[in-house]
């Protein structure tokens, strides 16, 4: 069983990367079903369970930062348990879902704990240190691999029962709290952006954008088109005011350069 568990863990690590990096979608359960089936020597059952899990995850896609139950762990553990325990596909799904939900909580934690590294990255950027920036990204890929491989290995090697007990022992409020914090976190990013871009004269359009989204629930594309309309109006108003001088900026720029 050790060999099979290790191979499945290796696959989980690879597709754990693919879920965020690469996105060739080898991480979909329909593919995992085939691969785990090959590893465990039962391709047909693997395909059937994979296809069934696929139908469940089909509607669960990462939209606008919202995270569905983890498809990597759900797919690998679901298929592996289904084949090993001889469960029918539906029961395999029931076994896989708690893991998939718990793992998504952990991913929230992972994405939160990676934020401090961005300040390290700022320093690398300031020093024009390209190796530093690359290192941080390679570190991220490595963490994704190890994280998914370990999580897939443990329950398959030690057995479904113990693993389920362990997952259920984590207080729900911690997983819930982390995912709430994950939802609020983009506010910090937007605040950083505002700090750089905001000028008093732009408050008007900021309010417009907010109202269009919050009250009228317009999609972002519509909002950006309205922003563009305002920008075009503003652009031509100002250009016309400049009158015949409007060619001058080019000239100024050249002298500036010298």
């Amino acid at each position: 069983m050790l060999m099979e568990s290790l191979l499945i863990a290796l696959w989980a690590g690879i597709i754990g990367i693919d879920l965020y990096v690469g996105l060739t979608h080898i991480h979909r359960p329909v593919v995992t079903g085939l691969v785990v089936g090959l590893i465990l020597g039962d391709v047909t059952t693997g395909l059937i369970i994979g296809g069934t899990l696929e139908l469940i995850w089909m509607g669960m896609v990462p939209l606008a930062g919202a995270q569905p139950p983890n498809v990597v762990i759900g797919g690998t553990i679901g298929t592996a348990f289904g084949i090993i325990l001889g469960e029918d596909p539906q029961a395999a799904v029931g076994l896989a879902i708690p893991f998939a939900v718990a793992v998504q909580g952990l991913i929230t934690l992972l994405f939160t704990s990676f934020a401090p590294l961005m300040h390290k990255a700022d320093k690398f950027a300031l020093d024009a240190n390209h190796r530093g920036i690359e290192g941080i990204n390679y570190l991220g890929v490595t963490i994704l691999f190890v994280f998914n491989a370990v999580i897939a290995f443990l329950p398959i090697y030690f057995g479904a029962q113990q693993a389920t007990v362990l997952v259920e022992s984590v207080p729900e409020w911690i997983i819930g709290g982390l995912s709430i914090a994950g939802g609020i976190m983009p506010a910090v990013g937007f605040a950083l952006l505002l700090r750089i871009m905001m000028k008093t004269e732009y408050i008007m359009v900021f309010i417009v954008g907010f109202v269009l989204a919050a009250y009228l629930e317009m999609p972002i594309l519509a909002i950006s088109l309205i922003g563009l309309a305002i920008a075009l109006y503003d652009f031509y108003q100002n250009r016309d005011k400049q009158g015949p001088d409007n060619q001058s900026p080019q000239g100024e720029e050249i002298t500036d350069g010298i």
Partner: peptide
């Protein structure tokens, strides 16, 4: 768009901040 980089920069900021205003209402789940 050669003419007047100042004006273009201003126009880009206007679109940018409209979008940021909208993104806050859409992306921040609180």
């Amino acid at each position: 768009l050669k003419a007047g980089t100042k004006l273009i920069s201003r126009a880009a900021s206007i679109v940018g901040l409209t979008v940021v205003g909208g993104l806050i209402a859409t992306y921040v789940a609180f």
